[in-house]
């Protein structure tokens, strides 16, 4: 990436350096909302059992925008699916608000990367209202009202009665986000939600997501393989190493948003993560 622009150098000098944040460390921490404690995950192929993640320890606090960053094969998506309850850990435990995660449930709504996550037989407003009725037990009118309000927020008011196949990829992801927001889950899980979008739409969606977070302050667990996206969207990044996934480190990035793209300190942060991502693995170095 060569996004460095010279005019930002004056700003960059004033911007705080990422690792220096001792003042915040002194404040006593509340209990984490989501605790991933010593979690190992395995998946089965026809021939063998593969360890996708090994003894992961991560704490996610309320209103965090927590990003799982890593190359493919680091088990970040598998970890997200474990938090969602689709996969059971082979060791360790995942607790949400102190309650162990056992199975999928509407307190952890997932936004997938794939566009076919929206039932095609429901219009946009029905798609958002359906889980409100099915899982939250709201009455029809109530669910529709809440669905319409959330659809307004993501800017799809004009498409409320359209079917998913009539929407573009970015609009479908907006519906998926609206559906998740309307449910007001304890934690919103996003599995590379913008990876299948074109670059311009992706940037727009990142901006909108940050604006929505500013308003709702929901807790996000966001999986990505893009360093820039991790720094822009996240407030804290956990870097995972591949084969099997282990936590390489956690880094703060709450000071960056889309306007910091190209600034010196942002570039330095990108470079720092980049170096850690591409360092030779200990096995090959030996």
């Amino acid at each position: 990436m060569t996004l460095v622009i010279e005019r930002d150098s004056a700003v960059a000098v004033r911007a705080p350096q990422p690792p220096a944040a001792p003042r915040e460390m002194l404040r006593p921490l509340p209990d984490p909302l989501l605790r991933i404690a010593g979690v190992s995950l395995e998946y089965r192929t026809p021939g063998r059992v593969v360890r996708a993640a090994h003894r992961i320890d991560l704490d996610v606090y309320e209103a965090d925008r927590f990003v799982l960053l890593g190359p493919s094969g680091c088990g970040k998506s598998t970890l997200l699916k474990a938090v969602a309850g689709f996969i059971a850990p082979v060791e360790g435990e995942i607790t949400l608000g102190g309650v162990p995660v056992r199975k999928p449930g509407p307190d952890r709504i997932v936004v997938f990367q794939e566009f076919d996550q929206l039932p095609p037989w429901k219009t946009v407003v029905e798609n958002v209202a359906f889980p409100l009725r099915a899982a939250r037990g709201l009455r029809h009118a109530e669910a529709l009202e809440r669905a319409r309000a959330t659809i307004d927020k993501v800017g799809l008011t004009a498409f409320a009665t359209s079917y998913p196949h009539q929407l573009s990829g970015g609009m479908k992801q907006r519906v998926a986000i609206a559906r998740a927001l309307a449910m007001q889950p304890k934690v919103l899980l996003m599995d590379e939600p913008f990876a299948a979008l074109d670059a311009l739409t992706r940037r727009k969606m990142q901006e909108e997501l940050l604006a929505l977070w500013d308003e709702a302050r929901m807790t996000l667990l966001f999986v990505t393989h893009s360093i820039e996206e991790a720094l822009v969207v996240g407030s804290r990044v956990a870097l995972l190493s591949p084969h099997p996934g282990r936590v390489r480190g956690e880094y703060n990035c709450h000071e960056y948003d889309l306007s910091s793209l190209g600034s010196r300190s942002f570039q330095a942060a990108v470079q720092r993560l980049h170096d850690r991502l591409f360092e030779p693995s200990p096995e090959t170095a030996r």
Partner: peptide, 22 residues
Amino acid sequence: PDPLRMTGRNYGLEGLRYVGQI
């Protein structure tokens, strides 16, 4: 498709409701 199945289970649908509604 898998995302659709997982979406249904994510809503907490099970058994006949899962079959009938998803």
